Simulated scan of single mutants.
Amino acid sequence: MRSTFDWNDSLFDVTWSENNEHVLVTGSGDGSLQMWDTANPIGPLQVFKEHTQEVYSVDWNQTRGEHLVVSGSWDQTIKVWDPMIKDSISTFRGHESVIYSTIWSPHIPGCFASASGDNTLRIWDVKTGGARIIIPAHQAEILTCDWSKYDQNLLVTGAVDCTLRCWDLRNIRQPVHHLAGHSYAIRRVKFSPFHASILASCSYDFSVRFWDVSKPDSVLETVEHHTEFVCGLDFSSHIPGQVADCAWDETVKVYTPACLTVSH
């Protein structure tokens, strides 16, 4: 099945529903979120419009029993949505710059992380409505973050300073891992769903790198198969080792890097 949807502004992010294989949500440059149904591709099921600037990040909750969407915007706010209700159920303020990344914890209900141009990583609690933890994670804009799929206290950040840093929420005074190798800003980072210590990053240096945080010399492989900025990246949750990435060169690559064809 193939579906095509049109919107009247740029779309910066997309997230699938966890309880309906046909439904997804996108975030737009006009400050709105759109909910689409691939079984009914005539237009959005719902449009959520509260942000006043670009919606740069959307994520659908994957923890048990919760069906909430979190959005991060250039208007410096984060909003949580129940897709069945037109208005947001919570708004979170505290970041002092644009928000580039918002992602739910895969372990802790009602908990999500955000990364911002104010150089901080923040951990939020929907129930209390505030930031539980604020980490000055880099001395540069943080463009991306992700949770470990195996450790509820471990997150990774990627920034304009070309580095990745892994953080243990039980001790945030310094990162537990500092990964250097990219030569331009890191646009997206993802932990593997199949290997506890493996993560991947993509960058404006046209490359994708695979890392093993359990090893001191952790760069496993560098993949350079794009001719422009690499902006999107994800591991398949169904096929171990399979990766998809996309770039400004207008291509999507689906592949299994050599470093993941052997057992870890």
Rank of each mutant, 00 (worst) to 15 (best):
S57H: 03
W81I: 04
Y100R: 07
A159Y: 00
P109F: 00
T26I: 11
S17R: 09
F112C: 05
M84N: 15
T157M: 05
V160G: 03
V55A: 08
T52V: 10
G129C: 09
T52R: 10
A115T: 09
I103Y: 07
R93H: 00
T128I: 11
D146R: 03
H138Y: 09
V58W: 04
S97G: 14
V80P: 03
S57I: 13
K149V: 03
F48E: 01
L33C: 07
I42V: 15
I135F: 06
I99V: 10
W16R: 10
D146Q: 09
W16K: 09
C111M: 13
L154K: 02
C111T: 12
A131F: 00
S101E: 08
I103R: 13
T91F: 08
R122T: 01
T52C: 03
S148Q: 05
A140N: 11
K79R: 15
L68Q: 10
Q53G: 00
D125R: 02
A115Y: 02
E96Y: 02
V126M: 12
T15C: 15
V58A: 02
I103S: 09
R64A: 14
G27K: 03
D151N: 15
K86R: 14
V80A: 03
D161S: 10
H107A: 03
G130W: 00
E54Q: 06
E21G: 09
